[in-house]
Structure formats: structure tokens, C-alpha cells
Design a protein around this nucleic acid. Structure first.
Lengths: 169, 169
DNA sequence: TAGATACGTCAATATGGCTGCCCCATCTTC
DNA sequence: GAAGATGGGGCAGCCATATTGACGTATCTA
């Protein structure tokens, strides 16, 4: 794959054609890392009869109180129907509550209840334990690199959304 | 866990209690990065009437020809039933073939057919495009950090498996 | 030969996604 | 004030992917 740099006539390989090994390594580590991290909260969720889809909604509502439905839809990138079921479950379990929008009364503003806050924090703790130990083992420099590469995987049209999330804390 | 060498009385916070912000950032970037990367191959899969589960099997068979069923089960961490359906589909589409094990005739050794190799390579190309551009934007140092953190997320009992995968290429 | 292992398979069930269609309330624009 | 756009809710039906538990067969190992 890598063109020898000594040959001047043929341009060297574009950075888009990195050695296959490096790409495969990333694909695999992302797969294992992501799946193993999410597995850390399955037990906590199961105790409440909830699944990962519920956690994702819970998580982003925790992160941005007064989020609207359509904003949450953009973040999760699922359909209204799918989200509807999840939010119904969360409301029934009194983990999430909605209020009518103030500037636009068509909107619903999503918030966690006190119990929702408690539960999300409990789940987050499991995530923190896993991720913090990975951070600690890798060192701060590695963490920065970890963030940079992942940011590069987010398509331009989604980037503003992700950055907005991270402004709040 | 590391005791601060300078302060003797009050220990600083353990590395396991990193600032919440840093952990949330990692959780979110992993979510967006992973989901956006996997989305890159959905169209290619759909053309063949296959889903992501099929790709995961295809991918790891490509990576380790003559993989056995039980090894693949460990990697994917799903049930025999679930994998069975996926492999049946792949066999019907003539993307995967099996041979009886040589050292142990109970085993089935999984391999891609020529068409399977071609198809996996095509899908891989979409992954490479995404990941390579993220690598290029972040720089080689970042890529190393990216790998290190992700490795730290893999539980000890799975680590040998992942490392074994990466020895082959 | 007895037991463990590798694989296949049955039936039933859960979860979390999807499409297409239609509804109402509210905001915006003309 | 009317027309249309937007935010949200909901119905019916479907699909993909996962689960459990039990059982069967071939093969290996002690």
C-alpha cells in the first residue's frame, strides 16, 4: 500500500491510504472498547427493567436539561417512533418529566426528575470507573489523542452538536 | 491509586475519580465516533440484504481465517443461536464457507469465499476512508493515544484475544 | 467406555429499530 | 386573519438482532 518515498514520479500514497493494519487495529479496538464500556451499565439498567436505548436518552437529557424532543432526535439519530417508546417508559418510571416550552409552546422540554438524576448518576458511576481506569492506564497525553481521533470520526454536520454538548460542564 | 509523593497528609483524589467532564467527553465521543463509523458501511451491507451483525462476523473471519465457531463466539460475545442465523445467511450468500477441523474433527473452520473476500474488502474500504481521515486529522501521536485508551477499556480476560487478532497482519 | 466438548437446532420471547400515514397545537408569514 | 410550516404524538405493521433453555449428534480425551 505505501508507495516508496524515494520514487519521485509517482506521488506517495495519500494519507487516506494508511497501512491496513493500523486501520484494522482501530476498527477492532473501537468495537471492543465501545461494547465493553456499554456492557458496564447493563446490570444497573436491568434492575429497573430498562435497556441501553433508555440509557442513551437518559444520558443526554442529564447532559442538557430542557432539551427538546427534536434536539434529542438529532443526537440519537433514531426515529420519532423509537424515541417515543423510550420516553414513554422513562416517564412512566418517573425518571423523566416534560414541560411546555416557554419561547415556543409547541416544544416539550425534557428534564430528569430527582429520581432520574439519582439513577443516571449511578449508571454514570459505572462508566466513570471503566473509563477513568483506562485514562489512568494510558496517561493524559493519550487521552487527548483519544479525543482527537474520535472527533475526526464525527461528520462535519454533527460536530456542532457534539461541541455544544461539551460546552455546558 | 498512585499516592502523591509531595503531599503526605491529604491524598489527592484517586485517578479513578477524574473530573466528570473528562469522562463525559469520552463517553460521548465514543458514542458518536462508534455509531458514525459503523454507519459508513450500512449502505454497502443493505445492497446485499445484510446487516451489521453479518458484517461483524464477516470482518473477524476475514481477520482470522480458519477461525472456529467457539472462537468467534468469544469475540462477538453473543449466543450460539444468534451467530447461527448470521452464519447461515452468510453461507447461503456464498460469502463464507466451512471446513471440518483437521486436528479436531468436531470443529468447523470458517473462511471467506473469494466473493466473501471481495465483499469484505469493499466494506473495509468505507471504514478505512473514515478512519484514515480521522487519523490524518489527528496525527500519529494522537492515534497512539487513541489505541492506548481503548486497550484500557478491554477487560483483562478479553485482552489476549484482541492481541492475538492483531498479531496476524 | 464414560464424560466432556464443539456444534446445530427447536421454540418462545424481548428489544430496539424502521416505514407510512395521519392527527393536533402552535408559530410564522403573507 | 388565513395558509402553511413546524414540533410533537400516535397507529399499524414490520424487521433485525439479541436472549433463554433444552435437547441431539459427532467427536475427543481420560
Amino acid at each position: 500500500m505505501a508507495a516508496p518515498s524515494s520514487v519521485s514520479a509517482a506521488p506517495t500514497a495519500s494519507p487516506l491510504f494508511l497501512r491496513e493494519h493500523e486501520v484494522r487495529r482501530g476498527v477492532e479496538l473501537l468495537f471492543f472498547g465501545y461494547t465493553r464500556l456499554t456492557r458496564a451499565i447493563d446490570d444497573g439498567l436491568a434492575e429497573h427493567g430498562l435497556g441501553r436505548a433508555h440509557h442513551r436518552a437518559l444520558y443526554f437529557i442529564a447532559r442538557q436539561p430542557d432539551l427538546t424532543i427534536s434536539e434529542l432526535l438529532k443526537i440519537l439519530a433514531i426515529t420519532k417512533q423509537s424515541l417515543g417508546r423510550v420516553l414513554t417508559d422513562l416517564a412512566e418510571k418517573a425518571l423523566v418529566e416534560t414541560r411546555t416550552g416557554v419561547v415556543d409552546r409547541r416544544q416539550k422540554l425534557l428534564r430528569l426528575t430527582a429520581e432520574g438524576v439519582r439513577f443516571e448518576a449511578q449508571l454514570f458511576d459505572a462508566l466513570r470507573t471503566s473509563l477513568a481506569s483506562a485514562y489512568a492506564a494510558a496517561g493524559q497525553e493519550s487521552v487527548t489523542g483519544f479525543w482527537r481521533v474520535l472527533e475526526g470520526l464525527i461528520p462535519a454536520e454533527d460536530k456542532a452538536m457534539v461541541i455544544a454538548l461539551q460546552k455546558d460542564i
